[in-house]
Design a protein around this nucleic acid. Structure first.
Lengths: 217, 217
DNA sequence: AATGATTGACTGAATGTTCAGTCTAGAAAC
DNA sequence: GTTTCTAGACTGAACATTCAGTCAATCATT
C-alpha cells in the first residue's frame, strides 16, 4: 500500500517531470526564494531526500524548473502561433498571450513567476543564461512574424530589429503591471496598449472592441 | 575607542538613515532575499542587535529601505527635471534616467534592485503598496511633462493617459534588459529606443547621435 | 541617578543535506 | 524453478548550519 498522491513509483524521467511540475507550482505560490524542498517533496508526494536524490541540490532543482517552464511556455506559444493564418492574427495572439490571463492557472499567479525569474537572473548565472535565451527566442518570434507580415503586405516596412526590441520591452513592462495587478493597467488595457502600439508602428488597422481574432471570449 | 567605519554615533535619525543606506547597498549586492541583518549591521559598522533595536524586524528594515530608496529616487528625479527648460529636454532626461547608468544615485546602486523590488511586491503587500505609489508617481511625471509640452506646442495632441501607460511600461521593460545586461539591448540602445518611441508618438524631432540635451558625456 | 544607546552572547526554529539502511524487481547462479 | 545477488528507488532520522530575534549587562550623556 502506501498509495500516495503520486501513485505509481514510475520511471526516473516521470519522477523528474513530476518534481519539476511540483517545484513550479510551489515557486508560483510562494515565490522562488521561499520555496523549500520539503514543500516540493510534499507536493510531489515524496520524501525530501528523494528530491535531492534526483537533483543534486536545491538550486539545481529550481534552476531546472525554470528552464523546464521556459521550454514549455515557448513550445506552447510556437505551436499556437503556427496555427494562425495571417501575420496580424499571430501578432495579436502573441500580445494576448503576454497580457490576457487564461483560466488555466490562477490569474496573476503565472505572471508572478516572471518577476522571480528576472530577479533570480540578476544573481544566478545559470538562470541568467536561461533568460538570455528566452528573450532572444521571444524577439525572434516577433521578428519572424513581422517579416512574414511585411512579405504578405500586411505590415509596413519598419526596421525589424528595432521594432522587436521595442515591442518585447513594452510587453515585458506590461507583464509587470499585470503580475502586480496594477489598478490602472489591467490585462485588457495592457492588451489594447500593446496592440495599438503594434498597429500604429506596423500600419495595420485594429479596433480595440473585437478581442482576439481567434476569439476565445 | 571602537572607532568603526561608521564613525560618530550620531542621532537616532542619522543612525536610521545610515542603516537604511547600508541595507540598500547589501540588497543591491546580494539581492533582497539573501540580505541578512548581520550584513547590514556590519556594513553600518554596528551590531546586529542594534539594527533590530531600530527596526523591530528584518522585514520592516527591508521594506523601509525600499521606501527610502523610492523617495530618494523621486526627489532627485523631480528636482532634476524641474531644472530643465523645455518639455522635450525633460522627457529626454526622464528617459535617460531610466536607461543610462550614472554615478548620481549612490554609486553601485544599480538597476537590479528594481527586479527585487517587483518580485517582492508580488508577495509582500507592504512593498506592493510602495510600488503602486511609485508607479503612479512615475506616470504622473510623464503626464505632466506631456501636458506641458502640448501647451507649449512642442508635442502633438496625443491621449495623455494612454501615452503615459505605454511609455512607463516600455521604460520598465527596457530597465529589465539593462539590469540583466542583455547583450542586444545595452543602455544606449535602450535610450534610443525609448526616445525614438517618444519622438514618434509625440511628433517632435530627435536625432540619436546627440546624446542628451543637457550633455553630461 | 536615570535614561537611552549599544553590544556580546545566546537561543530556538527552520531547513538543506547526509546517511545508513529498506524495499522491490529483475538478473545470475544453481 | 528456486535461491542468491545486485542495483536502483526510496525513506526516516539525524546532522549541521544559518539566522532572526532576545536579553542582561555595559556605556555614554544629560
Amino acid at each position: 500500500m502506501t498509495v500516495r498522491a503520486a501513485e505509481a513509483p514510475g520511471t526516473a524521467d516521470q519522477r523528474r517531470a513530476q518534481m519539476l511540475r511540483a517545484a513550479l507550482e510551489i515557486i508560483t505560490e510562494r515565490g522562488y526564494p521561499d520555496t523549500r524542498i520539503a514543500d516540493v517533496a510534499e507536493r510531489a508526494g515524496v520524501s525530501p531526500a528523494l528530491v535531492i536524490y534526483y537533483f543534486k541540490t536545491k538550486d539545481q532543482l529550481l534552476t531546472e524548473a525554470i528552464r523546464h517552464y521556459e521550454d514549455f511556455w515557448y513550445t506552447v506559444s510556437a505551436r499556437r502561433l503556427a496555427e494562425l493564418p495571417t501575420a496580424t492574427a499571430r501578432l495579436e495572439e502573441l500580445v494576448a498571450m503576454n497580457c490576457l490571463p487564461e483560466e488555466e492557472p490562477e490569474p496573476g499567479l503565472s505572471w508572478q513567476i516572471w518577476l522571480d525569474f528576472w530577479a533570480q537572473a540578476a544573481r544566478n548565472t545559470e538562470v541568467a543564461d536561461v533568460r538570455r535565451m528566452s528573450d532572444e527566442r521571444w524577439r525572434e518570434m516577433i521578428r519572424s512574424i513581422v517579416t512574414l507580415g511585411q512579405q504578405t503586405g500586411e505590415f509596413a516596412a519598419v526596421e525589424v530589429e528595432g521594432f522587436a526590441i521595442c515591442l518585447a520591452s513594452l510587453l515585458d513592462g506590461l507583464a509587470i503591471q499585470i503580475a502586480l495587478e496594477d489598478s490602472v493597467v489591467d490585462p485588457v488595457t495592457a492588451f489594447e496598449v500593446g496592440m495599438r502600439f503594434a498597429a500604429d508602428q506596423l500600419g495595420f488597422a485594429w479596433v480595440p472592441g473585437r478581442t482576439r481574432t481567434s476569439a476565445v471570449q
